[in-house]
Write a protein that binds this DNA or RNA. Structure first.
Length: 685
DNA sequence: TCTCTCACTTC
DNA sequence: TGAAGTGAGAG
């Protein structure tokens, strides 16, 4: 049950998703979406029961799943999840700056070589247990399933979203750290980079240009990244941080805001000695010098030519649009000065910047209650159990999205019509290896493929379902090669020498024989496999893939359970590895934004999904139909789970799960053994 | 729309 | 000093 009070929260309106219910903030919807987590596979044993509860049943048996997770933790030798004694509160840093950008519809440049976010995503956290260790993460999810264009100085919907890019979770490099450490300073994710390179191997967050995204922040109480799947996520969404990814800035105001606020763009400021003027004058001077030389040679000098470097000449010749641009820029600066740094755009965002976490335990009445109840902010606290089921999250795009005057550069702010864009940059080559962030990546595409397959294969009843799609090639914990380099820095236990182990572990988790080949995968990037290729192939095949996440009526404890189940049940060498597509069930928070309710009494999602979805082709395979590829792969692998009848993942799922659990436990034990010997770390930055 | 190079900046 | 991060502008 939604509460109309939400409309007054200051975040009710969403310029890019006008069709959504007015009484439910987009941030609430996004916060309600479970965090991305890599390869949350469901064990065959669990699939049935889950499937039963799925169709249209928000009252999924979370407790049972939690119990399952606890059981799995026990099997795995992990200590029981500590009682939640903390009550984290999260405050967005530089909110004023975000607000300024948000007024015009924030644009984030994405380049092949990766671009940082500006404003940087920074938060301040409080309410953590000082002694407990936490992992802080963020991810960026699609805000809707639309593609946009910047037309007539405003953002408009340009159609359906393109296939979604592989999902990556950015784990803060200081993770894990104690609550005290996290709370002692601002937690900055400024090193997170955005790219449009689907084949990115740096671990950057991959986005689609001209699509709208919402960053999300997650707090996980866990002292080891390996325990992420067993842990509870708290997710925070700040609605003012949403943005549209672009390869070139579209809105002049955004450009100017960035120039004025980003230190690295100082050279472009109209301060008199900025590069823009210098370059302009230099170019003009060169031109004139050349022309004069030519003239002298021809002895027919132009008498009416202005002196080299004159201002008027400069404007006229080199920057025909610059007077307007500069004037506007000045205006902007003056406006900003007038507003003051603390003006915050004057929007009704409240004074309390703390993110609200949708009350989870016990608050099944819906996230909206928490939203409306909270006095503050644009942020939302994610429900850990009963997220508000998306009331009507339409998967269709309206003809026009940007009706919010504040997001229309021209409407309120006299944006001169139409300078379509300014161009972009991309540091050439991208050959330099920068700091590789720790990210976790799903084979998102697979998930989407599965989703798409479900859609295509006529399972309308699956729409709007929590996404337990049958997908193959998952890693329970997929670590990007780039993480190897940083893992030693980010995780004390994963010191230099642990890279190989981590890689091996990843490989092992991903499919090495549990008992016989604990370290069978070399620690090279080749040992890890990226979904990019399959995704690309599938995308090129035109297979529909969902472009934006849907909301799920269960909270993150459930996710943890699913993840635990995944680790336990998706064992076996082949089916965890992208190269060895074996079909199995997996949880993915990124499913279609589906509005169609499942057919009551219809087949469970898992069951139907398992029957419908087909594994993607092996990376080396030429593009082909997913089903084809699936059959091929399954055939070669002996298909422990062939394309598969529903819930046909092995005759003894429990045994399979325990087997894998044992292997994981061995690996974890090895890690922790080494960790014990390694020195501790510094505090978070 | 996108990619690349460039000059400029910060750190 | 140089790596890395900027938007401009050309293609």
């Amino acid at each position: 049950m939604r509460e109309p009070a939400l409309a007054a929260s200051g975040m009710a309106y969403h310029p890019f998703f006008p069709g959504r219910p007015s009484d439910l903030p987009m941030s609430a919807l996004l916060a309600a979406q479970p965090p991305f987590f890599p390869a949350l596979a469901l064990p065959p044993g669990l699939s049935g029961s889950l499937g039963k509860g799925m169709p249209g049943d928000p009252g999924l048996s979370v407790s049972a799943l939690s119990h399952q997770a606890a059981h799995l933790r026990h099997l795995k030798g992990l200590e029981a999840e500590e009682a939640v004694e903390d009550d984290p509160k999260v405050t967005l840093e530089a909110k004023d700056l975000w607000d300024q950008f948000h007024k015009f519809g924030t644009e984030m440049v994405i380049t092949k070589s990766g671009r940082r976010m500006f404003p940087p995503f920074k938060v301040r956290v409080s309410g953590l247990d000082k002694k407990a260790k936490y992992i802080l993460l963020m991810d960026i999810v699609a805000a809707d399933d639309c593609r946009y264009k910047f037309h007539n100085s405003r953002w408009m919907v340009a159609g359906k979203a393109d296939p979604e890019m592989p999902k990556r979770m950015y784990i803060h490099p200081d993770s894990p750290a104690t609550g005290e450490q996290w709370m002692s300073k601002v937690v900055s994710f400024h090193k997170l980079k955005l790219t449009n390179n689907i084949s990115d191997k740096h671990g950057f967050t991959i986005l689609n240009s001209m699509h709208k995204y919402q960053p999300r922040f997650h707090i996980v109480r866990a002292n080891d990244i390996l325990k992420l799947p067993y842990s509870t996520f708290r997710t925070y969404v700040f609605s003012e941080t949403d943005f549209i990814a672009v390869t070139a800035y579209q809105n002049d105001k955004i450009t100017q805001l960035k120039i004025d606020n980003n230190p690295f763009a100082k050279g472009f400021r109209d301060t008199g000695n900025g590069r823009r003027e210098k370059r302009k004058q230099l170019a003009l001077h060169s031109l004139r010098t050349y022309e004069e030389a030519e003239g002298e040679e021809r002895d027919d000098g132009d008498s009416d030519e202005e002196p080299p470097g004159s201002a008027s000449a400069s404007s006229r010749h080199t920057l025909p649009a610059s007077p307007l641009y500069s004037e506007r820029s000045r205006d902007d600066r003056e406006q900003r000065g007038g507003r003051g740094s603390g003006a915050g755009g004057g929007e009704d965002r409240g004074l309390d910047l703390s993110a609200k976490e949708l009350r989870s335990p016990g608050d099944r009445a819906a996230a909206s209650a928490a939203f409306s109840a909270s006095s503050s902010s644009s942020s939302s606290r994610t429900p850990e159990r009963d997220a508000p089921r998306h009331p009507a999250r339409s998967s269709s795009c309206p003809s026009e999205a940007s009706r919010h005057p504040e997001h229309n550069g021209a409407d309120k702010h006299h944006d001169p019509a139409g300078k379509a864009r300014d161009g972009t940059s991309a540091r050439g080559g991208g050959g330099k290896e920068s700091f590789a962030p720790l990210t976790v990546q799903t084979d998102g595409p697979h998930a989407h493929v599965a989703s798409g397959a479900l859609h295509n294969l006529g399972f309308p009843g699956l729409h709007g379902q929590p996404f337990f799609a049958p997908i193959n090639g998952s890693h329970p914990l997929f670590l990007h090669p780039g993480q190897m380099a940083m893992a030693s820095g980010a995780f004390p236990g994963l010191s230099a020498g642990m890279g190989p182990l981590l890689a091996s572990m990843s490989g092992a988790l991903g499919g090495a024989d549990a008992a016989g080949a604990p370290h069978g995968v070399p620690a090279s990037s080749a040992a890890l496999h990226f979904p990019g290729l399959p995704h690309h192939l599938l995308a090129s095949q035109g297979l529909p893939m969902s472009a934006f996440g849907s909301l799920f009526p269960y909270h993150y404890t459930y996710m943890a359970a699913a993840a635990a189940a995944a680790a336990a049940g998706a064992g076996g060498p082949a089916h965890r590895h992208p190269l060895f597509g074996r079909q199995h069930l997996r949880f993915s928070p990124y499913s279609l934004p589906l509005s169609t309710p499942p057919a009551p009494g219809g087949p469970g999602l898992l069951a139907a999904g398992a029957a419908a979805a087909a594994p993607p082709p092996p990376p080396a395979a030429p593009p082909s139909g997913a089903a084809e590829a699936a059959s091929g792969v399954e055939g070669k692998l002996g298909g422990a789970a062939s394309p598969a009848p529903p819930r046909s993942h092995g005759a003894s799922p429990e045994r399979e799960g325990k087997s894998e659990l044992r292997s994981i436990q061995r690996l974890v034990s090895g890690l922790e053994g080494k960790r014990g010997a390694s020195p501790g770390r510094g505090s978070p930055s």
